[in-house]
Design a binder for these strands. Structure first.
Lengths: 203, 203, 203, 203
DNA sequence: CATGAATGAGACTTCATTCAT
DNA sequence: CATGAATGAAGTCTCATTCAT
């Protein structure tokens, strides 16, 4: 019954292998999408046999979920930087630029969108996204509420809540634009980001 | 409730069949995603044999492409209504509400996102989206440029361009939010849409 | 979701195909056992593609179950002949002889044993066997209870019940012997069957 | 409850390991069947690595064969007790009761049946069963032939041979009944065993 | 025009077995 | 002696596509 009786340990080896698999999987998922990417694909990219994948992950959907959570973590990290940043606009622009460049190393607009679409159908993914979104929301809101001498914006909670939502929509919208318009001139983007941010932060 | 709400057009026989297939396909794609939906699925939903699908479409990906173009058309129709609307905010809210409700009749946030992600990988889809986006962009921009006595905003072209982009990002971002947060209270959304629109249209 | 939307019909064609598959499956199961026989095996024996098997049976275990029920039916038919037979002993000997000869056409001692063992683990098979056994038990018992002028034995029900059980054990035991001792001289078998039957039918 | 009830023999190291493996294998085979039980399963149950299994057994089928021989030995031991027993009927009833209870400690009706079915296909198993059966046959026969003052039955060899066969069929038949009818009331069994034995031993 | 039976490739997954450590 | 990571073949099942009817 139990496929991995003595393996689940957090031995460094196992962790390295999981990383290798997740790296490969991320690459494949970005390149082909969650469904079109095959385990054969992932195994080849990770330079291991297909069978070995199953020593470290119970199923393909477990890998998908791990990648989803990984992306969410990276997203949260970005956001953390973001609101600690002196220059919110620069940070958003940086994110957008990476999305548009399709740098497969870390972050991916396509994955963000596919994850979001998949959340519509897969309850596990929906739960992961929901939990992550709530955490990010709270983080950003608390930043906006914090006093200005603490690096915050000093907004009342209800106002902050609305602005977080506004920001969330805008940033996610940039992901859609990055995916759909890889050749777009980034200059106007810089401008609208600046506009948006300055108006967002205005009282 | 009715499976084919927009299908009853008075078209020659072949066109009717294509419509039936596309309606079925749309339903299936929304429900399962482009890859997870099968031809068997579509045929069953369209109440016809699988073989017949191939008389009207060369392959599954041809159906996908047709659906993509269909969605884009519907999107353009929405946008046309939208900027002719006296109340832009109400129109956006209406769209968002349908997205969140997952009304399978016409429009789908999940499909919008999956299409956008897929554009990253499939050149045909990318081309379709790009062409459609450009057309929408031009439409909306020309509306903004048009004089206020013509129902426009009377903005200079370069300013209009930036605002279109801003609007595009915002609306697409709402699709992401609708997909990821099906249980979210829509009240704050109404507020931020109002805020956004009023500031957007402001000079 | 539904793999065979318009197929389950009892068209003659479908019935023929199901028969072909079951014939092939029976042969394979007898030859290799339920688990060791593969779908590839069955498909090849039935001279069709593996995929086609799934148009007529939902899964391998559905085929196994169908074969189990088929064997049980054949068993019941044998039993029906058996107790209508003027010569019970000859009928049992005939069954034993077929078992020992491993005639793969209809009946199989190996399958009977494997089924019985599998009933220990698979609830569906257990249910099928249990239901069939009960029916056979009742049939034979009612024969024994029936008056002698009706071709029965005229036994009281409780006595009949014990004799049916005794007979059941003996016949199943012959299946084990047939499986384990393919080269055994059948002569002593004839004798013990005669002995057993004559003592069984004695008052 | 204890996983290795009969394992604690005082043997050199290697023998102890083999025993551990065989005990684990027996448990797994009873629980899942010969084919469905995996080496991973056995290793886990034996609390050792999979690799180690191969130090003591050449292959899975070697383990299967060893288990078969083990069961046969236990069977012979039972039979030895049996015919030395003052009360044959009680001994058979005891065996049947254990079979029906599916006491995993030593003996298993399911394994007996699966072994017998497998003998139909695997020559090695067939040979093992055949040899064991012959030995048991001779044992029991010689007991029946022995004089009554020696604890035997004092039967002539040819009569004895037929009675052994009869007994063999009956006892194996009980195994089938035990496997197929786990919920059967054991009372009638006691009665038919008594009947059978008393008539068997009668001259 | 329409059907749906049929195919073959390929998907995910399991497993007996080997081997470096 | 012992481990458990690794492999590759094989298993079950799905699916886009074709074709005789």
């Amino acid at each position: 019954m139990n496929a991995r009786p003595t393996c689940g340990k957090d031995t460094p080896r196992a962790e390295v292998q999981r990383e290798r698999i997740l790296c490969a999987a991320q690459k494949c998922f970005i390149e082909h999408g969650f469904h079109a990417a095959s385990m054969a694909n992932i195994a080849e990219t990770a330079q291991m046999s297909q069978g070995l994948l199953y020593r470290y992950f119970e199923s393909k959907s477990a890998i998908v979920l791990a990648i989803v959570e990984r992306q969410l973590q990276e997203g949260r990290a970005h956001v953390a930087e973001l609101h600690s940043s002196a220059d919110l606009a620069a940070s958003i622009l940086d994110t957008y630029t990476k999305w548009q460049a399709r740098d497969p190393s870390v972050f991916s607009a396509a994955l963000l969108l596919e994850m979001s679409a998949e959340a519509t159908r897969d309850p596990q993914i929906a739960a992961a996204l929901s939990s992550s979104d709530r955490r990010i929301f709270a983080d950003v809101q608390s930043w906006m509420v914090r006093g200005q001498d603490d690096g915050g914006l000093g907004l009342p909670p209800d106002v902050a809540a609305r602005r977080v939502l506004l920001l969330e929509a805008f940033v996610h919208g940039l992901a859609v634009i990055a995916a759909r318009q890889p050749d777009r001139d980034p200059a106007p983007l810089r401008e609208i980001i600046d506009t948006f941010v300055s108006r967002l932060l205005a009282p």
